[in-house]
Every structure is written in structure tokens, then in C-alpha cells.
Computed example of a mutant assay.
Amino acid sequence: MTPLSLDSAELLAIEALSWLVRNDELLPVFLGATGASASDLRQSAKDPEFLASVLDFLLMDDAWIAEFCQSADYRFDFPMRARAALPGGTQVNWT
């Protein structure tokens, strides 16, 4: 799995956030999970760590990823590759 550039990863995460904001069922779940308010989203969209949390949230459920990727015409592995490029995205090898 090849990570994306930071700029490409941030762009994808902003697209995912935009998709999430338009999802009336999933947005409240995201806000509850992150503690963010609807008014925090615009300012937080500039923060790479917050953008990473958007992708972390979506990656919790294959159906969410599939829905987002289908809506944006992305391959299903694209969000995971983007997540790897954002802060905290490197895989930890515990052995």
C-alpha cells in the first residue's frame, strides 16, 4: 500500500468531511464520537489531525467507506492510503 502525498491525503479527507456533513444520519454519530460541534467543522477542516479523525471514523465501517468511495468514484483502498499519509497514520509493528 503506497501512501499518498500529504496534500492529496488532506484533499481526500476534506472531500470525506464534505460527504459526511451532507449525510444526515451519519453526521450526528461523527459529532458525538469526536466531540466536535457543527460550527467546529469549518475551522477544523484545516487541521491535519482532525482530517485524520474523519478518515479514522469512516474506516470504522466498511459500508461507510464503500458509500463514500462510490459517491466520489474512488477505489475502496484510497481512504486508507490517505489515512497513512496523515498524522498518526503509520502502522505500528509491535514485534
Rank of each mutant, 00 (worst) to 15 (best):
V29A: 02
V29T: 03
F30N: 00
L31K: 10
L31G: 12
L31D: 04
L31V: 10
G32L: 04
G32V: 00
G32F: 02
G32R: 15
A33S: 04
A33C: 06
A33R: 09
T34D: 03
T34C: 06
T34P: 07
G35Q: 00
G35M: 01
G35T: 00
G35K: 01
G35S: 01
A36W: 02
S37P: 05
S37M: 08
S37R: 03
S37I: 04
A38W: 14
A38R: 15
A38L: 14
S39N: 10
S39H: 09
D40I: 06
L41A: 02
L41C: 04
R42V: 10
R42F: 05
Q43W: 13
Q43D: 08
S44H: 12
S44E: 04
S44G: 12
A45L: 00
A45C: 00
K46H: 14
K46L: 12
K46V: 14
D47W: 07
D47I: 07
P48Y: 02
P48I: 03
P48D: 03
E49S: 13
E49A: 13
E49C: 10
F50Q: 00
L51T: 11
A52N: 05
A52D: 05
A52P: 06
S53N: 02
V54Y: 01
V54S: 00
L55P: 02
L55Y: 12
D56M: 08
D56H: 10
D56P: 06
D56S: 07
F57H: 01
L58N: 01
L58A: 02
L59E: 05
L59N: 02
M60D: 13
M60E: 14
M60W: 13
M60F: 14
D61C: 05
D61R: 13
D61V: 01
D62I: 08
D62K: 11
A63E: 08
W64A: 06
W64N: 04
W64L: 11
W64Y: 10
I65S: 05
A66M: 09
E67L: 11
E67M: 08
E67S: 14
E67C: 11
E67T: 10
F68C: 07
C69G: 04
C69S: 08
C69P: 07
Q70H: 10
Q70G: 13
S71M: 05
S71W: 06
S71G: 06
S71L: 04
S71H: 08
A72S: 13
A72P: 08
A72W: 03
D73F: 09
Y74I: 09
Y74R: 12
Y74E: 12
Y74Q: 09
R75C: 12
F76Q: 10
F78Q: 15
F78H: 12
P79G: 04
P79D: 09
M80V: 11
R81P: 10
A82V: 09
A82N: 04
A82Y: 07
A82E: 06
A82P: 11
R83G: 04
R83V: 10
A84H: 14
A84I: 09
A84P: 05
